[in-house]
């Protein structure tokens, strides 16, 4: 199995965000947009509607009949229900997609220690039936924060994402703007919102779709600092 060496990791949207005036900084090996020149405005937007690209940050996953058991054996906290997300001690989030599959989101605001530890612990013999999944490359990762996020999603997605139907840590695997997506109800720096994980090759398409759909709510792209994920 290939082990990644720490080359700097960028979002598939790097150039597009750069064009919007992103100011960059590193979080671990990930080059992330700190803000877009207007930290105060972005913080305000984060309460209303803000789109934060987390695609450069670490994530991972394990799949197969032994996947959940193997992770639990290493100390991961995973409950019995699937289509639920389970928060971990280091701030990462395990979205249990099925009884046989876990999608792991690294913390937005710190080192992904658990992801690294599990990756280090994996080998084909010890983890038969628990196969690693290249989630950092297969999926792009957005966080849509703010109270208007459910109304915006209502234009793109047939699943009800309002609080009463989609409480914290609920997971929905569905279609968003005709692209398969995993939605995870989450929280970053006290900002409620929805994580959206989708085909990394469609990141640019989805970004455009979001900008268009956010317009009527005065939503805008925001850097990680806007949701308190960077100092």
């Amino acid at each position: 199995m290939i082990k990644l060496v720490p080359l700097p990791r960028r979002s598939p949207l790097h150039r597009r965000l750069d064009g919007l005036g992103a100011e960059w900084s590193f979080q671990g090996d990930a080059e992330v947009a700190r803000h877009f020149g207007d930290p105060e405005g972005e913080r305000t937007a984060a309460g209303r509607l803000a789109l934060v690209d987390l695609s450069a940050l670490p994530r991972g996953g394990y799949k197969g009949p032994a996947a959940i058991g193997w992770l639990a054996g290493l100390g991961a906290l995973i409950g019995p229900e699937h289509n639920r997300a389970y928060p971990q001690a280091d701030g990462s989030l395990i979205a249990k997609l099925a009884p046989t599959e876990a999608f792991i989101l690294g913390p937005a605001d710190g080192p992904a220690d658990l992801l690294a530890a599990w990756e280090g612990a994996w080998n084909a013999e010890a983890a038969d039936g628990a196969w690693p999944m290249p989630r950092r490359d297969s999926h792009c990762w957005f966080f849509l924060a703010g109270e208007a996020a459910p109304a915006m999603f209502a234009k793109l997605c047939a699943v009800d994402l309002r609080e009463r139907a989609f409480p914290l840590h609920a997971v929905a695997q569905t279609s968003v703007a005709r692209t398969n997506a995993i939605l995870v109800s989450g929280e970053i720096g006290g900002h409620r919102g929805a994580h959206l994980l989708a085909d990394s090759a469609s990141a640019d398409y989805l970004f455009g779709v979001f900008l268009d759909a956010m317009d009527e709510f005065d939503g805008r792209p925001a850097g990680l600092a806007a949701i308190g994920a960077l100092g």
């Binding site: 090759a201 640019d204 779709v209």
Partner: peptide
């Protein structure tokens, strides 16, 4: 309505 037509790009698109 607002039609959705996904387009996929490779990592080397630019």
């Amino acid at each position: 309505g607002r039609g959705f037509e996904p387009v996929r790009r490779t990592a080397m698109h630019d």
